[in-house]
Design a protein around this nucleic acid. Structure first.
Length: 475
RNA sequence: GGCGGCGUAGCCAAGUGGUAAGGCAGAGGUCUGCAAAACCUCUAUUCAGCGGUUCAAAUCCGCUCGCCGCCUCCA
């Protein structure tokens, strides 16, 4: 039984979709700059949720939008002297590249706000017809007071919000909490025709329109970062439910932030880490492993060290996987029953609000088990066939888990191959050095043999001597 | 000020009523010419603190302290 933490009720509850088809919407980026680690966390968290739901046998219709019209885009365009569209296209492309780099699966639908204008106009018109919105000088505002449930998602009440409202209130609005559905365009700004004059959509309305267009009036899951709970998601609920008269979202899921030195990563604090910079310095699987090492709702603190740790953990995983794979080549497995203890644990953990941190713990527990069994089997203290059957189960379960987490996903050969691309030496050259070193070793010339090992070490090659011979790997 | 969340070993992090997963770092050991890798042992009588409920609490309740987020664009 899958249980998820639903922000709407503030606790975990059983996930019961209406049917085997799941409609899921996640708020995507506003495309005015490169995406940062925080975006990566949200994308990876919901990528794993998407994959797991599919793994569980659901058909998932996953929509993630691009907000491609917005003040920040316009500002940047003006600053650079190019069109808003050009800015949006540039950063959509960049975002897509980053997602691909992170191994994030492509959602079913990836709509853009600017391609949903007719539907946006439709929702606004419906709200005007129902007297939930009003027009002032070509702007259209949503009348928050007309919506009973306002504040339910964020646990706020209207009176308190008003009391704490910060300045800069637009005097024309009937109520400080009212927000723009449609903004009349100023000279030179991108605009679309509407019954209320030329203008562009407000931020919140696009998600209501896109969600409805691609997934219908009531959807199963709506996700995004915690900071979107208020006002963005609160406003989406108000708009959608007032317009359709039906519940908007059944399960609201929100991911925690990536912090740097305990503080939220954000533009205003200037502590941004771009995805592409990180990906440049570190394999994608290590980034994902870092992100998935905490439960998706918890805050996680970034530092260069934790990424290094994730990378080291990955290294350990693949080194053991390689051992397992070589062992399974040497020992025939047939007719032995393969057990899937790991897979069962994986499902139990994931069923509990996608507890990837616990899954990763189990994987490394299994890694230790596997190494222990291999040590014992290799020294004849363990039955080879029985060992092979268990390791075979591990290997299959690693693949299963890897396919959902997008980590531990490669064959060990592939992983090691990729690492070898980064080095300046040819494998034949390295083999040559190893032969030379072993000749020296056989003569007891430790000085020479150690120098060869040190020299290779400086070029990123690590040597390991085993009873069967010397092996090398890339650090 | 209002609302929400968090506080588990040197660090990261699971565990939400049945007696503290896992990783990194550290110490000792096995193996090795020496290493490396791997394995073994050790490293939280205790879960911010104080009370309460219970046969039983890190887990539930209350209070205190500390940190963070939202209330304004934000993943």
């Amino acid at each position: 039984m899958l249980r998820v933490y639903n922000t709407l009720i503030g606790r975990k509850e059983e996930f019961m979709p209406d049917s085997g088809k799941i409609r899921m919407y996640v708020c995507g980026p506003t495309v005015y700059d490169l995406s940062h680690l925080g975006h990566a966390r949200s994308a990876v968290a919901f990528d794993v949720i998407y994959r797991y739901l599919k793994y569980r046998g659901y058909e998932v219709f996953y929509t993630r939008n691009y907000t491609d019209i917005d003040d920040k885009i316009i500002n940047r365009a003006n600053r650079e002297g190019v069109s808003s569209q050009e800015i949006a296209e540039r950063y959509i492309k960049a975002f897509d590249e980053d997602m691909e780099g992170l191994g994030v699966e492509v959602p079913t639908y990836r709509p853009k706000a600017t391609e949903t204008i007719p539907e946006i106009l439709g929702v606004i018109q419906a709200l005007l017809d129902k007297n939930c919105a009003y027009i002032i000088d070509g702007d259209v505002y949503y009348s928050v007071r007309k919506f009973d449930g306002y504040g339910r998602l964020s646990g706020k009440n209207i009176e308190e919000l008003e009391a704490g409202a910060r300045v800069e209130v637009d005097e024309r609005k009937r109520d400080p909490l009212d927000f723009a559905l449609w903004k009349a365009s100023k000279e030179g700004e991108p605009s679309w025709d509407s019954p209320w004059g030329k203008g562009r959509p407000g931020w919140h309305i696009e998600c209501s329109a896109m969600s409805r267009k691609y997934l219908g009036e009531t959807i199963d899951i709506h996700g995004g970062g915690r900071d979107l709970i208020f006002p963005h998601h609160e406003n989406e609920i108000a708009q959608s439910e007032a317009a359709t008269g039906r519940p908007f979202v059944r399960y609201w899921l929100h991911n925690g932030f990536v912090n740097i030195q305990k503080e939220k990563m954000s533009k205003s604090l200037g502590n941004i880490l771009n995805i592409r910079d990180i990906l440049h310095a570190c394999p994608a699987e290590a980034v994902r492993l870092f992100l998935l090492s905490s439960q998706y709702r918890s805050p996680i603190d970034y530092s260069p060290d934790v990424l290094k740790e994730a990378n080291a953990a990955l290294e350990r995983f693949y080194a053991t996987l390689e051992r397992i794979e070589s062992y399974l080549i040497s020992v025939e497995v047939k007719g032995e029953s393969v057990e899937h203890i790991l897979r069962d644990k994986f499902e139990t953990d994931m069923d509990d609000d996608f507890n990837t941190a616990s899954v990763i713990g189990s994987v490394f527990y299994a890694i230790k088990e596997a190494n222990r069994m291999l040590d014992d089997a290799e020294s004849g203290r363990r039955d080879p066939k029985e060992t092979a059957a268990i390791l075979c189960g591990f290997r299959e379960d690693f693949r299963t888990i890897g396919s959902v987490l997008g980590v531990f996903n490669k064959g060990s050969a592939q992983y090691l191959e990729e690492k070898k691309r980064g080095i300046s030496l040819l494998p034949e050259e390295i083999e040559g050095f190893i032969r030379e070193r072993n000749e020296a070793r056989s003569k007891g010339d430790w000085e020479k043999s150690d120098k060869i090992r040190t020299d290779l070490g400086e070029r990123g090659i690590v040597l390991e001597d085993y009873p069967g011979g010397t092996r090398w790997k890339v650090r």
